[in-house]
Design a protein around this nucleic acid. Structure first.
Lengths: 156, 156
DNA sequence: TCCTGAAACTTCAAGCTTGAATTAATCTGC
DNA sequence: GCAGATTAATTCAAGCTTGAAGTTTCAGGA
């Protein structure tokens, strides 16, 4: 998916293909950089960060299935990541409400403090990495991405 | 990294953060859809497709390290994917040139035929998935992505 | 020649990811 | 109330991914 057009493909539909390739390369490049920094600076991983970010915004907790839907990853995937976060003392499972199938997951006190620190660094990094996109351009790009994304969100 | 702004973050630098989140969500959504279709229709995976796409453009073959650099993945990763492609008869390793550390990797005849079919479907899918981005908008977006990506390519 | 360092790959452990199968709890229609 | 379907979560095998360590080969200098 990352293949670039060396013999410069042309023809109908090629512009969208090229856009997709650029999009993918851009996000992979940034993702790799962020992953590396998270590992070096905070000894953590992107998936853990993603989960903690989601939970940070939901102090009352989230269901596993909500997490999975929100993060666009499979159910079983979330289970494993939460397992690790729990064993690190950053997240807790609570089986509080009536439905005993579900488990409400949320950050521990420590998890919340830890995340706040990491998130600040993360935001700074993203600012650097996208440094040569002006704030204005960022807004325009965001708008375009939103419009074409919404076509596909929650479709199946 | 996929966390969306529910309490709508604002302040300096937030626009770039939001852009990054949108970018990531967009590429994950499209990637998931393409992976699903590759699996259903052709019983293959995205990483295999990526590798074959790179090799398709290089009939004379590529070094493992070239593949790794081009695809933005680690060296050891490529070894595993190539192993599987070789065992499927789609790719061959040749130790032809003087340097016996290197192995030139390329598509087999069958691999080349197989890829051509998959690639046609893939391009059609991308056209559909990005259907509500006009060709013109696609070109503009591509331009923006190129400019900010180039800042980071091959930097370390 | 031989040594040292670098380069190209491979191997490996740990973690991420998926999709399918399983378990447990809840809901629905009768 | 209860059988059957649905939903929430876990488990599992297979594959992907990384970063680190190890192997083989090459290149250059004493």
């Amino acid at each position: 998916m990352v293949a670039g057009p060396l013999p410069a493909p042309s023809g109908p539909g090629k512009d969208r293909l090229r856009l997709w390739i650029r999009l993918l390369r851009a996000s992979r490049t940034i993702e790799a950089e962020l992953r590396e920094r998270l590992r070096q600076e905070f000894n953590t991983t992107l998936p853990r960060f993603d989960v903690m970010a989601a939970l940070y915004r939901a102090p009352e907790g989230m269901l596993m299935s909500d997490l999975s839907r929100f993060l666009l990853v499979s159910n079983g995937n979330v289970t494993g990541i939460i397992d690790r976060l729990v064993s690190e003392g950053l997240v807790m499972r609570a089986r509080r409400n009536g439905d005993r199938r579900t488990s409400m997951v949320r950050l521990t006190e420590e998890g919340s403090k830890t995340f706040a620190v990491i998130a600040a660094a993360h935001e700074k990094w993203v600012g650097e990495l996208l440094g040569n996109v002006s704030e204005d351009e960022a807004r325009r790009l965001t708008g375009m991405l939103t419009s074409f994304r919404s076509n596909w969100e929650g479709r199946e």
